[in-house]
Amino acid sequence: MGKEMTKEQYSKMVEKASPNSPIVKNCIKAFIVGGIICTIGQIITNIAKFYGASIEEAGTYTSVILVVAASILTGLGLYSKLGKFAGAGSIVPITGFSNSVTSPAIEFKKEGMILGLGAKIFIVAGPVILYGVLTSVIVGIVYYILG
């Protein structure tokens, strides 16, 4: 029997034995699905503008429609299937944000409306909200000083 293996040696062994995610394939799928979601968003915006909405209003309609649609798809168990296929393609758009709020709401509802759903609804999206707001504030201050 040889000497005991070190953690570094084992780590190298594990790296060799562990298959990597198919990055190129995943990127292509993410690009296509993410692109389709954004195109749908653009179509909604264009339709809203066609019917006389301002650019700000059209943007708001688009966000609301996409968020509600993704939330419904999550409830029907379809968004998780899309996410499995598309990865970042369905996580990055606003629909992914909707999915990340709706899915804990469904999962933790069993622990009650307050301590379950209420406390855990932002378990996935929470960091995005916190650091998103924080970044906005910092950018706002910089913009104020420079502008």
Binding site: P19, G77, S80, G83, T102, S103
Partner: peptide, 17 residues
């Protein structure tokens, strides 16, 4: 999944390992 990873309906990908 609920305890160790993510809610069931969250759209994520699993790694090959």
């Amino acid at each position: 999944e609920k305890q160790f990873r993510f809610p069931m309906d969250l759209g994520t990908q699993r790694t090959p390992t």
